[in-house]
């Protein structure tokens, strides 16, 4: 297994792991959003969806453990690469001018860490319902009521909306970037690859934010 160690220890191998785990989590996020949007179909639609998910049983645990592994690898390797990057330039420039690097690409570490904080809060909030007794008192499958009660609080709704725009920013660089890391770069589809990240980022940010926004404006109650 020397080859595996050599590959994962290498710069390109480390980037491969961040790219592949990132891609897997993008898949999860897209599926998560399509489930969430059922809230616009009314309590019945989203609650029965939640119940269906819970009834997957062992399969649900496979997905949960898979996600946990993906997220852990993504974070560990991203931090490892980042520390190596910092060590590679001990003396900073007195003057540094960026010519091409996008704002999103320059803030990957910050948006990534902010998202980690958001995910921990989100799990405590909706999965463990540990943040308020009001939510803990709801029935197990009353997802609709849980969403409405939470997002009627402007602070919570605002936190979710801001976090979803950070997610969009993170993915606008990350998704386009992973194609390059995996070796997909060709003049034929370079523009397409370059725009898929920002497109997906904006789409996901708007999609997710639509729910707290709809509750806040009284469209869902």
């Amino acid at each position: 297994m020397g080859w595996l160690r050599q590959t994962t220890d290498s710069s390109i191998g480390g980037k491969l792991i961040v790219a592949v785990t990132g891609l897997a989590m993008v898949g999860f996020v897209v599926a998560h959003l399509s489930g969430n949007l059922l809230v616009f179909g009314g309590p019945q639609a989203v609650n029965s969806y939640a119940e269906g998910l819970r009834k997957l049983g062992a399969l649900l645990w496979v997905a949960r453990i898979g996600l946990l592994v993906m997220a852990t690898l993504h974070i560990v390797f991203a931090i490892k690469l980042n520390l190596a990057n910092r060590a590679a330039r001990p003396q900073a420039y007195a003057v540094k001018t960026y010519r091409r690097a996008s704002f999103a690409s320059r803030s990957m570490l910050l948006t990534g860490l902010a998202l980690l904080g958001y995910i921990l809060f989100h799990l405590a909030h909706f999965t463990f319902r540990a943040t308020s007794p009001e939510l803990a008192a709801l029935g197990e499958y009353d997802v609709y009521q849980m969403i409405v009660l939470s997002f009627q609080q402007p602070l919570i709704a605002g936190l979710y909306i801001v976090s979803m725009f950070l997610l969009g920013l993170h993915l606008s660089h990350g998704v386009s970037s992973l194609f390059q890391t995996l070796g997909f770069n060709h003049p034929k589809y370079r523009n397409l690859v370059g725009s898929i990240g920002p497109f997906l980022g904006v789409l996901l940010a708007l999609g997710f934010s639509s729910i707290p926004a709809a509750v806040l404006f009284g469209l869902l109650k």
């Binding site: 050599q6 220890d9 290498s10 710069s11 390109i12 480390g14 980037k15 690469l81 190596a84 990057n85 060590a87 590679a88 330039r89 960026y98 010519r99 091409r100 690097a101 996008s102 690409s105 320059r106 990957m108 660089h173 386009s176 970037s177 390059q180 890391t181």
Partner: peptide
């Protein structure tokens, strides 16, 4: 690539400043 890593160069963030 092994030698490049050994020399202490960093990792690519796909910002394309190099290009």
């Amino acid at each position: 690539v092994k030698q490049m890593d050994l020399e202490g160069f960093g990792n690519c963030s796909n910002q394309y400043e190099c290009e």
